[in-house]
Design a protein around this nucleic acid. Structure first.
Lengths: 240, 240
DNA sequence: CGTGAGCTTGACTTGTTTCAACCAACGTGG
DNA sequence: CCACGTTGGTTGAAACAAGTCAAGCTCACG
């Protein structure tokens, strides 16, 4: 499960966005045979497994290589809010570069391969280059934009709008990485992920999804989602 | 309305938290007669006035001196989500240190006095001192914690829980600044602010507030809020 | 003195939850 | 290889929380 190594040895899907640029610059990820960057440990986690729970001390900075992760908060009575989905090439949360006590839990959505870097190493690398600090600032800005968007969606939008927006925005993030072909992309989320991410119950989320399917907006087959009427979905989500 | 000056000349309420520490360190705020810090312009804005609208370019970094501000997002059909209340001594959003195009609007809740600093000056000051960068990292972490909390509240909690949590957390922030006496503090929010911050309608928010009043949890008189049964309110908000 | 912003209350509607039943796919162990 | 439990999805009926609409009130302000 844990495997210490000094050389990046795995291909990195996707190539756009500040996250990936920072990862590249710090050599947190890299193409096969890339020169040595920061030392890291590589881990694997089976799907649906909790990696860290809220308030736990995480001594490292984790970056996802393969698969999807999610960050979430669980209340005492079992209600759960998913705060973000973490796609390949993304830092789980820039929060962890600054502070080791994580406020939300992190879990594997799919089978997951990720790397952890020593916080001190990351900080040292950042300290040596102002450009990296600027890049980190941009990543944090993207994170706050996403967090703000989530609050607007949860506070002001109804079930159909929320779900449409979730699907469209995931498809856009994946498209930027070249992971969408003919409107189809890998979609590992179960209905309970969608429900927890949109603040709805599983039952209601499921009803909205079958509505979308029946309206000819999209289709989910196995682990793949196909946008049949992308413009229609965007319209439902008011994403003009 | 605009008044350029080189010396901090106004008392700063409150004295705790990374925000204020950073402001102090950068001399963005300071006690009367403090030595010169970064140059700034001082502005005043009457209550209920919009200061910047979403997507507007803000060439400066604004810090509130006196009064409350709010950041919000407004949808095309008028729905509005308040993302944060900005109290005296706080940077409106650390986002603006990095990037000038603001994603949410900023408005004065009360009559407001605030200062704006040139982004380049702030960046230069940060570049000269790694401690300041660390402090900024902590501020950003606090901002993401608050944003995450908001998403959890909006996604998972009912009306009474949301409103109780809003009131208690505002009272705690104010208490840290020494602005609460005998459970009473200045509370300039109208019901529509509470509604927009909690994702409820004004009518429903009003009903919950009168419930709280009748249950002997709190009281609002004029612009002052009194916590009569603080523990009870915390219980309603599940803030143990 | 009138006008508008803010608060309260009640009756009714709607979106979402809850509960319950049922089905399909899958992996595991006997 | 079948039996069985688990996980995930679909559907319908009833209950409930919050939204909508509307009226009437107070208060501050010009």
């Amino acid at each position: 499960m844990v495997n210490t190594q000094k050389h990046a040895d795995a291909a990195c899907q996707g190539c756009i966005g500040y996250e990936l640029n920072l990862c590249r610059a710090l050599r947190l990820l890299g193409p096969e045979g890339a020169p040595a960057g920061l030392p890291f440990r590589e881990h694997k986690m089976p799907a649906r497994r909790l990696i860290w729970r809220e308030r736990e001390t995480v001594e490292t900075v984790p970056v996802v290589c393969d698969g999807w992760a999610a960050t979430a908060v669980t209340l005492s009575d079992g209600r759960r809010q998913i705060l973000s989905f973490v796609l390949p090439g993304e830092i789980v949360s820039a929060y962890l570069i600054v502070e080791p006590v994580i406020t939300c839990s992190v879990e594997a959505v799919t089978n997951l391969r990720y790397r952890t870097f020593a916080r001190a190493d990351v900080k040292a690398a950042l300290g040596q280059c102002p450009d990296l600090i600027a890049m980190l600032g941009n990543i944090r800005n993207e994170e706050t934009m996403r967090a703000d968007q989530l609050a607007v969606d949860l506070g002001q939008r109804d079930a159909a709008e929320r779900i449409a927006r979730l699907i469209v925005s995931l498809s856009e993030r994946l498209a930027r990485r070249g992971l969408v072909r003919d409107g189809t992309f890998e979609f590992p989320l179960r209905q309970h992920h969608i429900a927890d991410a949109t603040g709805l119950t599983v039952v209601h989320a499921g009803k909205v999804l079958t509505e979308f399917r029946r309206a000819g907006l999209m289709e989910i087959n196995g682990r793949a989602l196909t946008l049949i009427d992308a413009a229609g979905l965007r319209r439902v989500g008011e994403m003009h």
